[in-house]
Design a protein around this nucleic acid. Structure first.
Length: 906
RNA sequence: GCGCGCUUAGCUCAGUGGUAGAGCACAUCCUUCACACGGAUGGGGUCGCAGGUUCGAACCCUGCAGCGCGCACCA
């Protein structure tokens, strides 16, 4: 390991010979390999150090990295790396999710496109083999991408939700909850995806506003030909499944109808008019057709009134109603139009209105889901109260806190979770049925628990001993039924006395998106209580959702989702991390702009060049500043600013204010360190400087920079490690990322006087530069200034001030009488004058200004003429006229300024 | 319908009671030996609207408007 590290070190040329611009790619790859080699990321459960742990939200195994992953994982990496610097034993546990529907759909599509086959053509066993092949081929792409980003995960512990041991956990949990009576099988109204051909949980249905049509029709009263009841519906195609018409019992319009019957148009039948509170008197005609098989609300009403259920749809969303041959076999949306046309022909369609309503769409297949009655497995959530309380009482802390309210609301309205999926890729339900019993019942679809005696069903992790006599339930479980076990199922096997679990569970932080608060976070809390005996994590940090500049979600189809790998190639992983983090707001969505990443890259370059500059001034290493008492104000100032930065970061980390941390790191390096300190001490680094001054300045540089790189390291780990190594801030064989953050500040005493002095000099220099710019001599270096009313200490700093101000010289003259018209400024170091005498050729300058005045006057006249022209003002667009007015104002202002300058010359 | 959030410079956003900030973009100047992925200077904002509290409000309170998100069985 040490040898390898030495090779890394030796690959580094002296900084002063390196290119002017920082080139991240090679550096980043080199250090990542070195960290892996040094086993820097591996967690030791036997360590005596305090534990810090975090489990990765497992990305889809066949997924590829997008910006959301970058943000999410960069944040986790920052937390993990910071914890290491604080002396914690860190476990960041990585892995991937099998992502049932998404992965199966991918493989099915590929199969269809390349071989024209469906999964049923292959059969379950062969198809699953194909999915595993696909997983093995594409499964490590996202892992490689996370490594490219610099993620310090303990890769030796990588888990997959379909690993054998993990699968055992899933079965175990199912069996336990079944035994407890919380898992049951039943025929219920579920969300059915007609494309994926599976049931979905409520959370997988996305309500989307749709422009649709509201059909008004009339049903004839059975006992009174010629008398009709008006009904409105958005779904005429399910009319054949109508078994009643409901009205509100409080609705006076229909009171006389209740108990009578109407004629359903096709297939013709008499159906009752019933009264139900659910019907909204205000909506439509106030009468609601009841189709218990195809609407959740209708199903409930049907149950209340003991109505028949007539299913008229196939699983893939076509009409199944042989009694109505015109519609039989048609797709549901085609049938809708056809049904409306049929009603019209029969003279029963009154009108059609445009109407916007919410339709549930399948999260994965992007088609409207169909409410459908089917036999599924359901879970009554365990430990609901404990889970709700844990967040309410702050045992688990949500950040931003407001998400706790969303969580509480969901927890108070829990519905049983439909956990079975009619897929093949996933954890198969660990339930077996006796074959002879199944045959007797004809088909498993209608298999009711009531029909089975204890001897007919086997629920267990292992198959029954006489397996040949049993058939396993074909369904698999919802992917989230495995994900919700992630924090503890990744740390030890079922029944194992796991040292990892003992050391690292509960985890410290969870970093995830607020969009999966129900899917994942809430369920993990319940599973944690039920199966690990306590909360799964102490803090949950919800990240921003990343949008484009128009505020749209990133998506492949919109093409607005930049490939993070491309960004890293262009700007470096550090640049991407830093740039993205710096613009990440605390509780709001993030509008992504590539220029942010460019700034991250530029920042890395700035840092690199500051270090290159220092190396060019001498490669001797100063052993540290023994005594800060005698240091010049710039040195003390920058050190004390660094101490302040370290303290501010400490507070910001405690509050998870990641964007602010990046911003503070950025400001310190660029403003305090480069623009101020480095510019002020340049004299000390010239050939002419004394060795003592040089050593003191280099020493200060090293003292500050070595600590700064450490503070920066969680955000930009590669460049921080690289520069620390090149500059000799870490000993051979040592990694910056493993070094403890120093506790003591750089400046032990009071630095206020030094800071005030430095601030005064910097501000005075700025005012002097203003004067130069105002009188058009910004780039001249021979400008002289006179200071009146200077404090005594200024004399010692006059050369530095001149350097910062870009002045040829500065005199301190308490008795200076400035000639009339001499440009002057009030500064913290006294009144500063910039005598024009000798600086500019007064005659030439006067001539130049006069000429300029003439030119501007012409412009003013031009503008005035244009604006005085009635045909322009009346006919030109208002915008153009306004523009012209603004231009006139500008020219007038300029004229005034020039007049003042001319007066000053007199 | 209920809940949550947002509204500050052209753009993206900081800023929770005391003289409006950053980065980018823009304009002018500087190819000065760390960095043009740079430096200097400058223009640009009645802090969504209306009230209220206060000596004082971008900030606290109330109402309104616009935008976004979540939840909800109005067909």
């Amino acid at each position: 390991m040490l040898d390898k590290w030495r090779r890394v070190w030796q690959a580094s040329a002296p900084m002063s010979e390196l290119p002017k611009a920082y080139e991240p790619s090679a550096v980043e790859a080199r250090w990542y390999a070195a960290w892996l080699d040094g086993k820097c990321f591996e967690a030791n459960p036997a360590s005596g150090k305090d534990a810090y742990s975090i489990v990765i939200p497992p990305p889809n195994v066949t997924g590829i990295l997008h910006l959301g992953h970058v943000l999410n994982n960069a944040l986790q990496d920052i937390l993990a790396r910071r914890a290491r610097q604080k002396g914690k034993e860190v476990l960041w546990l990585p892995g991937t999710d099998h992502a049932g529907i998404a992965t199966q759909a991918k493989v099915e599509r590929e199969l269809r496109e390349s071989e024209g086959l469906s999964r049923r053509d292959l059969g379950r066993e062969e198809f699953l083999k194909r999915v595993w092949d696909f997983k093995n081929k594409h499964g490590d792409i996202i892992i490689k991408q996370l490594k490219r980003l610099g993620c310090s995960c303990d890769w030796s512990r990588e888990r997959f939700t379909m690993d054998e041991a993990y699968t055992k956990w899933v079965s175990y949990v199912f069996v336990e909850l079944f035994k407890e009576g919380l898992i049951y099988r039943g025929k219920r109204m579920v969300n059915w995806c007609p494309v994926s051909l599976t049931a979905l949980s409520d959370e997988e249905v996305i309500m989307t506003p749709q422009r649709s049509k509201l059909y008004f029709m009339k049903y004839q009263l059975a006992d009174a030909p010629g008398e009709y009841l008006e009904i409105s519906t958005t779904r005429p195609e399910t009319l054949m499944g109508d078994v009643a018409v409901a009205v509100n019992p409080k609705d006076p319009r229909f009171a006389k109808h209740i108990g009578r019957k109407v004629l359903r148009p096709f297939p013709q039948a008499e159906i009752p008019i019933i009264a139900d509170e659910h019907v909204d008197i205000e909506f439509g005609t106030g009468a609601l057709k009841i189709t218990p098989a195809h609407d959740k609300a209708d199903f409930e009403i049907g149950k209340r009134h003991g109505l028949e259920i007539i299913d008229v749809l196939t699983p893939d969303g076509r009409i199944e109603c042989p009694e109505c041959p015109e519609l039989h076999g048609l797709d549901r949306f085609v049938a809708r139009k056809k049904a409306a046309a049929m009603l019209e022909e029969m003279g029963l369609l009154l009108k059609v209105e445009e109407y916007e309503n919410n339709v549930g769409f399948s999260e994965r297949a992007h088609v409207p889901v169909e409410p459908r009655i089917s036999m599924q497995w359901f879970l009554k959530y365990p430990c609901v109260k404990e889970a709700a309380d844990a967040v309410a009482n702050g045992e688990i802390k949500f950040r931003p806190e407001r998400w706790a309210k969303t969580y509480a609301h969901w927890m108070e309205n829990l519905q049983d979770w439909c956990i079975s999926r009619q897929l093949w890729w996933g954890h198969q339900i660990p339930v077996w049925y006796r074959k002879d019993k199944l045959e007797a019942l004809k088909n498993a679809e209608s298999l009711d628990m009531a029909d089975l005696s204890a001897g007919d069903i086997h629920v267990g992790i292992e198959p029954p001993a006489d397996a040949v006599n049993w058939t396993r339930d074909e369904d698999v479980m919802d992917t989230w039924f495995s994900s919700w076990l992630w924090p503890f199922a990744t740390m030890g096997d079922v029944g194992e006395n796991s040292p990892t679990l003992a050391k690292f569970y509960p985890t410290t932080d969870l970093v995830t998106g607020p969009d999966i608060i129900f899917f994942w976070v809430a369920r993990m809390i319940m599973a944690g209580f039920r199966f690990a005996g306590e909360i799964p994590f102490g803090n949950v940090f919800f990240t921003s959702i990343i949008r484009d500049l128009q505020g749209r979600k990133m998506s492949k189809s919109l093409g607005n989702s930049p490939d993070p790998i491309d960004l890293m190639e262009k700007y470096g992983a550090d640049g991407l991390r830093f740039g993205l983090l710096r613009i990440a707001p605390v509780g709001a969505d993030l509008r992504f702009d590539e220029s942010a990443v460019e700034e991250g890259r530029n920042f890395a370059n700035k840092l690199y060049n500051a270090c290159r500059f220092r190396q060019m001034a001498g490669t001797d290493r100063c052993d540290g500043i023994a005594d800060t008492a005698g240091l010049p104000p710039y040195h003390l100032n920058v050190m004390s600013r660094l101490d302040e930065l370290a303290a501010d970061l400490e507070e910001a980390y405690a509050d998870y204010r990641f964007g602010e941390i990046a911003q503070r790191l950025y400001e310190f390096l660029w403003n305090d360190f480069c623009d101020k300190f480095l510019e002020a001490v340049k004299l000390d680094l010239r050939e002419s400087a004394t060795p003592a001054a040089r050593a003191m300045t280099l020493g200060t540089f090293d003292a500050v920079m070595s600590r700064y790189l450490q503070l920066l390291s969680p955000y930009m780990p590669h460049i921080a490690e690289e520069l620390s190594a090149r500059m000799g801030y870490v000993a051979e064989g040592e990694f910056l990322m493993m070094k403890l953050l120093p506790a003591a500040p750089l400046v032990s005493g009071d630095a206020k006087a030094a800071r005030d002095q430095a601030a005064a000099i910097y501000e005075a220099a700025g005012r002097m530069r203003n004067l130069k710019a105002e009188y058009q001599v910004a780039s001249r270096k021979d400008v002289r200034f006179v200071v009146r009313g200077a404090p005594a200490w200024l004399a010692a700093e006059i050369q530095v001030l001149a350097l910062l101000a870009g002045a040829g010289g500065i005199e301190i003259d308490a008795a200076y009488e400035a000639p009339k018209g001499t440009p002057a400024a009030i500064t913290p170091v006294g009144e500063v004058y910039m005598p024009l005498e000798g600086l500019i050729d007064v005659e030439a300058e006067r001539a130049r200004i006069s000429k300029e005045i003439e030119r501007v006057r012409v412009e003013v006249k031009k503008c005035e003429g244009k604006l005085g022209n009635a045909s322009f003002v009346d006919r030109a667009p208002a915008e153009v006229v306004e523009q012209e007015k603004a231009r006139l104002e500008d020219w007038r202002r300029k004229l005034e300024q020039l007049g003042e300058m001319l007066a000053a010359l007199a």
